Amino acid sequence: MPDFETIRLDRDAAVAILTIDRPEKRNALSSAVRAELIAALDQLRGDDGVRVIVITGAGDKAFVAGADIAEFAQRTPLEQRAAMAGRTVFAEIAAHPKPVIAMINGFCLGGGCELALACDIRIASDAAKLGQPEINLGIIPGGGGTQRLPRVVGTGQAMRLVLSGELIDAAEALRIGLVDVVHPAAELRERTLEFARKMAEKSPVALRMAKSAIRAAAEMPLSAGDAYETELFITCFGSDDRREGVAAFMEKRPASFTGR
């Protein structure tokens, strides 16, 4: 296991918890954080003992309060282009074969909101604040915010958030669909991990196929998506997990999935 300086990697049963550990900087997304998150995601990709991933921020003030502005303040446009080239943590989360849950424990702004948008499920504290305030710096979201946000909340709400730079609370984020579940702050970790553990009891094959099929819905026409779903269904149908799931149902017992 690599030694990380800006993140922590912990385990809870079959759930991996990635914590961005820069509370003094409100867990801002520096280049080091991005690189270490990608390294951790690579590691977890091949770890059969992990079935679900949770990403959160250290402390109770911020999930991720945005990019590390001091890091890019003096860059030229060419330097910034170079910094944005190659693999991005946002794309790596979205494409990861295992479900990724954002546990939003505070400020979730700018690059932090984009990080959450890249996750498959967003569970927030009732004290969370979310937004894309880049417009206040004379820039626009650069981590997929203008692309993923409209797909999640619709064009009008995305325009509202990106063009105004306003922050919204967890209740409003839930209303527009930016987050999927809201819990009291004191219960956020316990209830998020309880949900993640229940998900981790499902077939890893089916989890992987379901995520891939749902992600494809945003990219494909319906007819192509239906055809892709059928192929993934057949992949599941040929798995040991499908045989175990059906046997367990018929025998009225809990299934024991192996991921094969």
Rank of each mutant, 00 (worst) to 15 (best):
E5T: 10
T6E: 04
T6K: 07
T6M: 07
I7V: 14
I7Q: 12
I20Q: 03
D21H: 15
K25P: 00
R26V: 04
A28P: 00
S30V: 04
R34N: 02
L37F: 02
I38K: 12
A40D: 08
L44F: 09
D47C: 09
D48Y: 05
G59T: 11
A62M: 06
A62F: 07
F63I: 11
E71D: 04
A73H: 08
A73F: 13
R75S: 12
Q80N: 10
Q80A: 13
R81Y: 05
A83M: 11
M84Q: 11
A85K: 06
G86W: 14
T88A: 11
H96Q: 04
P97Y: 02
P99Y: 07
A102V: 05
G106H: 01
A118K: 08
R122V: 12
D126W: 13
A127V: 10
G131W: 01
G131D: 04
G144D: 04
G144V: 03
G145F: 11
T146R: 12
R148T: 12
P150Q: 05
P150V: 06
P150Y: 11
A158R: 07
S164H: 03
L167K: 05
I168Y: 07
A170E: 07
A171W: 04
A171P: 06
A173R: 08
I176F: 11
V182E: 04
H183N: 05
H183R: 01
R189L: 15
L193S: 08
A196D: 08
M199L: 15
S203E: 14
S203W: 09
L207P: 00
M209F: 03
M209D: 09
A217S: 15
A218T: 13
L222R: 14
E229N: 10
T230F: 12
T235M: 09
G238H: 08
D241H: 03
R243G: 14
E244W: 02
E244N: 11
G245V: 13
V246F: 13
A255G: 14
T258V: 13
T258S: 14
